[in-house]
């Protein structure tokens, strides 16, 4: 349950970042620069990867 909350929060901010970036021109001089999109989405991806690996190991042990 907790990991779903963690992933949802990261996803929510990823979506928010992409939306703000896109609606402001999808460029580096916008309200959210392009590099920020890579940063936020990248951290979200890593978070999901960790949670996914955690659940994989858990199911293997069980």
């Amino acid at each position: 349950m907790m990991k779903k909350v963690g992933m949802s929060i990261a996803f929510l901010f990823s979506i928010l970042t992409v939306c703000l970036w896109y609606q402001d021109g999808a460029w580096n001089y916008g309200e959210i620069p392009t590099k920020a999109v890579f940063k936020v989405v990248g951290f979200t991806f890593l978070a999901c990867l960790c949670f996914w690996l955690q659940s994989k190991f858990r199911s293997k042990i069980n």
């Binding site: 963690g6 992933m7 990261a10 901010f13 959210i32 920020a36 979200t44 960790c50 949670f51 955690q54």
Partner: peptide, 19 residues
């Protein structure tokens, strides 16, 4: 792994507000 998952989630949120 779970700890890192949370850490990266927090980094994603902080990065948003930082940028």
């Amino acid at each position: 792994l779970g700890g890192f998952g949370w850490l990266f989630s927090i980094f994603a949120v902080l990065s948003f507000f930082y940028e």
